[in-house]
């Protein structure tokens, strides 16, 4: 058994649109180890969600994926729909962004929670119900017997997302992909749901891919963090390293643009000037070059490769910040 649960190599995910082919994910490679929590951050439109759906295999119509997604050594891209249906649930599960829309409004919680178990674990209705009650207790839903009989609209947003997490955990997956799981929730509820995700992940030794546009969501709750920009990885490394010693100027800018409690009152927020490059016709070189203060001619002509900058830390930049003596080694 290798340490890597998921090995993504040169993943491209293109989606057809009236304006041309959107290169939502354009050459992304990373590993996800067993029992590890990986945060994926980036601004809206950076391709995080499409990447999650591409790994999962839930792509919209008129889309195309190339590359390699090795899950336990099997390439998910080569699997049939039938084979994927055996993986979805007991191997890989997903929590979606808005629990108000990812729970079927006309189906009781009971069936939404137990249908996957009954299909994959082959257990009886009463066994599935017992397990459903345990799961609801585990994710902190009070009064689980009553909630089981309820419809989604009878629950609050936070409760719905807890139910969605229970649904995802139902068949004990090895990998949980959480796509912006707290974006649609109240700020006070966000923390509880994130802490819950981290807790169930560590308790089960499950791998977690936590996608968010909010750096604070990822910081402190993940082992490693990947920063995405315009469909490519800008930087990946251990979370504390990425946050404390960012090597890509986009990561630094993103961190700098986040308001904090120490921020001087009424002072203008730091912003990243410029905007995301066109997703249908991206620049040939580094995608961040047009907005980067340190961009040179070389940045405009060739896409920078991932450079190892320290232990388990890599950056896609020709001229990373904070370079130390003898650090530049190709990855």
């Amino acid at each position: 058994m290798t340490a890597e649960l998921l090995e993504v190599t040169d993943l491209h995910a293109y989606i057809g649109s009236p304006k041309g082919v959107v290169r939502a994910v354009d050459g992304v490679s990373f590993d996800l180890r067993r029992g590890e929590a990986l945060g994926v951050v980036g601004e809206s439109g950076s391709g995080k969600s499409v990447m999650a759906r591409a790994i999962m295999g839930l792509m919209p119509a008129r889309s195309d994926r190339t590359g390699e997604i090795l899950f336990k050594g099997r390439d998910l891209l080569g699997l049939s729909r039938k084979e994927l249906q055996e993986i979805w649930g007991p191997q890989i599960a997903m929590v979606f962004q808005d629990p108000g829309r990812s729970l079927n409004p006309v189906v009781r919680i009971e069936r939404q929670l137990t249908e996957g178990m009954r299909r994959h674990l082959g257990i009886s209705r009463s066994e599935a119900n017992t397990r459903a009650l345990d799961l609801l207790k585990e994710v902190g839903v009070p009064d689980p017997e009553q909630r089981l009989r309820a419809y989604p609209h009878e629950l609050s947003g936070g409760m719905r997302q807890r139910v969605m997490i229970a649904v995802a955990l139902a068949c004990e997956p090895d990998l949980l992909i959480a796509d912006e799981p707290t974006t649609a929730l109240d700020v006070t509820i966000q923390r509880q749901v994130l802490d819950l995700l981290r807790r169930v992940q560590t308790e089960r030794g499950m791998s977690l891919m936590l996608i968010s546009h909010d750096l604070h969501v990822v910081a402190g709750r993940t082992d490693r963090t990947a920063v995405m920009y315009a469909g490519r990885l800008a930087e990946i490394g251990e979370s504390h390293e990425v946050f404390e010693d960012p090597r890509h100027r986009y990561t630094s800018a993103l961190l700098g643009a986040t308001p904090s409690i120490e921020h001087a009152r009424h002072a203008p927020l730091n912003v990243i000037s410029g905007s995301l490059p066109s997703p249908t016709d991206p620049p040939p070189g580094c995608r961040f070059a047009p907005r980067c203060a340190a961009a040179s001619e070389a940045c405009d002509s060739a896409q920078p490769a991932m450079l190892g900058v320290g232990v388990d830390h890599a950056v896609a930049c020709l001229n990373p910040t904070n370079m130390r003596e003898g650090e530049l080694v190709g990855r």
Partner: peptide
């Protein structure tokens, strides 16, 4: 196109099941 249909698929339910047990009624 609803998220709850994608969520039902993500549980590994078959296409026919998703269609008739999740999508048809709404």
């Amino acid at each position: 196109r609803e998220d709850y249909v994608a969520a039902a698929r993500a549980k590994g339910m078959t296409g026919t099941y998703v269609l008739f047990r999740h999508a048809f009624r709404p």
